[in-house]
Nucleic acid binder design. Sequence first.
DNA 1: GTCTATATATGGATAGAC
DNA 2: GTCTATCCATATATAGAC
Lengths: 218, 218
Amino acid sequence: MEALRKFNANTRGAIRESNEMRLLQAAETVFAARGFSGATTAEIATRAKLPKANLHYYFRTKAELYRAVLANVLELWLDELDRFTSDREPTEAIAEYVAAKLNWSRKRPNASKVFANEVLHGAPFLKAYLSNDLRRRVEDKSEVVRHWIAQGKMRPLDPKHFFFQLWAVTQHYADFDVQVRAVLGRGRLTDQDFATAAENITALILHGCLVPARTRPA
Amino acid sequence: MEALRKFNANTRGAIRESNEMRLLQAAETVFAARGFSGATTAEIATRAKLPKANLHYYFRTKAELYRAVLANVLELWLDELDRFTSDREPTEAIAEYVAAKLNWSRKRPNASKVFANEVLHGAPFLKAYLSNDLRRRVEDKSEVVRHWIAQGKMRPLDPKHFFFQLWAVTQHYADFDVQVRAVLGRGRLTDQDFATAAENITALILHGCLVPARTRPA
DNA sequence: GTCTATATATGGATAGAC
DNA sequence: GTCTATCCATATATAGAC
């Protein structure tokens, strides 16, 4: 009896978790493809293979589901900058960060698109996050960049704009993938395309931001 | 009599032109802020100070109005690469192009946003343009870059990815302006902000892509 | 917890008077 | 050419049976 109750509870809990997960995944795909307004709960439910009413059972409103998707996306963004510390060599820290960001663009393009769409349309759900968490985080990491500049390892650039440029070039391959594919003449971006992108971006950023070794003070 | 007919015709023509213009401007603003699905013809009409039925008189459907807005936007994009020619010094051509693109981000952020939104959601209206016109144009201009590389003036980079990176960093200031403003702590981006952006981007691209003069073959 | 049927709202589009 | 009133489709959300 006790075992059965527990079993049922676990089963129900597992079903809930599984259904919520499927809804979140489906929602990320649909929100990425159509934006918040363009996405319909019907399409999300269909893609998750659940009746529409169930979607509203797990997430009361479309906005609530959207918030949950955004929260998932921010988890990816968060802490990606953690390894950006002043005790490291800028070359390595920057190259690693570029590779990591570009990797997210390849593996989770929809996450990037949902975020891009949100910001593009004025960040109605994320204004507070951008002005508080993100802003503070960039302030922090700007100190690291200033340290490397003071050491004569980086050119005297503006740290915040430096981060804007890193984000722009790496997220471009997710957000504008249709354009990238059209220009490259690809049905979809291959591993080789991403490898080429990584090489080019890394070279651009490192040559563009670092002081060449031979001109540094000894 | 003749004069009156002409006057009326001109007046009617002038009204038409004025109304269409106002609708197009209003539509660009609303499509930029809300996307295609999120935009309502009611809001566009209100912003243009016209009754909603008039909007449908000038542009039969919302999609037709959207197409017209996109066509306007593409005019800005087109021919911006014209001055990218192999007889020029790459330093100048690139610096000029960056400045021009960034200037559009400042003056017509909504045009950039409408385009970004269209591409972000799979370019349902612009697929053909991207695969034909744009692709050919980039092929052409890639030759220019290859020429400069062969001359030893530019590093051996991939020309197409080079253009992706130029677009990414310059359009970022229009498309992600909310994020940029949040991080910089600005209500709106100032001329000074754009000047700083221009300096940083130009330095990044030139140092990142050009071969320093002293190491070039004489 | 699941799902059918439906209430309710919104928005694109048009008919028809002026 | 202009605008009011309205049609109709679509979409969010929920009630209520199972």
